[in-house]
């Protein structure tokens, strides 16, 4: 009996010890850019993960302040300052991070043939006013007269200096989220945390899988948000959706989206949503915004000519379109 007791105790110790060194997931929630952001990191180095998650908070906060259109922060030349305080032709030095961000966005203006335009702030403000005060829908004339939307009036000079040639107003909208998510993912990879999942609502970025599988990511149905209409599987990839997002308002039965076509100054009506899959979350975000502004068939053609980019469209009549190589993620 005595021996049996020791045997049981011994087995018991083996059972309990064999399982302490498993991979743990540490998760943290953030609220920035008007979105709940959930990040999960899978690692057995809890200390490193906790540090990384705390640093993430700082990164979000800094970028949030730099790109805030509505609030000024002391000691920061942010978007609010550039839009509201900066006089025409007055030069200021801005934070390197904001400079690089603006540079990326301006570069994409040309790539997207002017469809993704961050100088559209004046028009956005009119829409926001109508939406917030329930005034219905503005007219084209009103939108047109709201001010310049010419991005060429923003000059990014050397040494992180910048000046305006006209009273343009910058709006980074939701496209900044993809950019910051990408930065954070890259930061995790740099410090050796390769297994992560960043879920920022319309932007999801994943690293290596926590097991030996692929991440499974559902794409929400824009018509019925409690359901998903497609499943994407992949590692080291970002998925960004435009369209199905809740940020629209309804007037006389028609939904008005927050993404505005810089040519018509109205929200487009080509599709209910589009999702882009690409390694770089920042690029995927810009591209999904652009694809939302062009007809589906043009978008399919465009994506099929790009490398390592796939997309899926939820059409206006509820049909679903895929880019050529989409099946690799199924």
């Amino acid at each position: 009996m005595q021996r049996l007791k020791y045997l049981i105790l011994f087995l018991f110790i083996i059972i309990t010890c064999g399982c302490t060194n498993q991979i743990k997931v540490i998760s943290k929630d953030y609220f920035y850019f008007d979105t709940y952001i959930n990040i999960k990191i899978y690692s057995n180095n809890s200390k490193l993960v906790t540090e990384a998650l705390d640093k993430t908070e700082n990164i979000f906060k800094e970028y949030h302040q730099l790109t805030d259109r509505y609030n000024a922060y002391e000691g920061i030349n942010n978007l609010y300052y550039i839009n509201n305080e900066l006089n025409i032709k007055e030069k200021i030095k801005i934070d390197k991070r904001l400079y690089q961000l603006l540079e990326t966005m301006v570069d994409f203006y040309d790539d997207s043939q002017g469809l993704v335009n961050i100088a559209i702030g004046n028009v956005i403000d009119v829409w926001k006013d109508y939406k917030d005060n329930n005034k219905g829908v503005p007219t084209y004339i009103e939108l047109k007269n709201s001010g310049s939307t010419n991005i060429n009036k923003l000059i990014l000079d050397k040494d992180y200096y910048l000046y305006k040639l006209d009273n343009i107003s910058l709006d980074l909208g939701a496209i900044v989220k993809g950019y910051v998510v990408e930065l954070i993912g890259n930061y995790y990879e740099e410090i050796g945390l390769n297994k992560y999942l960043i879920n920022a609502g319309g932007n999801v970025k994943v690293g290596d899988h926590y097991g030996d599988n692929r991440y499974i990511i559902g794409i929400e149905n824009p018509v019925d948000v409690s359901n998903i209409f497609e499943i994407v599987k992949g590692n080291n990839v970002s998925i960004v959706s435009s369209g199905s997002y809740e940020r629209f308002f309804e007037y006389k039965g028609k939904k008005y989206h927050h993404i505005i076509d810089p040519y018509t100054l109205f929200p487009p009506d080509y599709m209910k949503s589009v999702s882009v899959i690409h390694r770089d979350s920042g690029y995927a975000d810009l591209l999904s915004t652009m694809l939302f502004l062009i007809p589906v068939d043009e978008g399919i053609n465009y994506v099929n000519h790009l490398e390592e980019v796939e997309a899926i469209w939820y059409g206006i009549d509820d049909q679903i379109f895929y880019s050529k190589g989409f099946s690799q993620y199924e």
Partner: peptide, 8 residues
Amino acid sequence: NEFDAVVR
């Protein structure tokens, strides 16, 4: 076994 995340 279901989804790791949902894109909206």
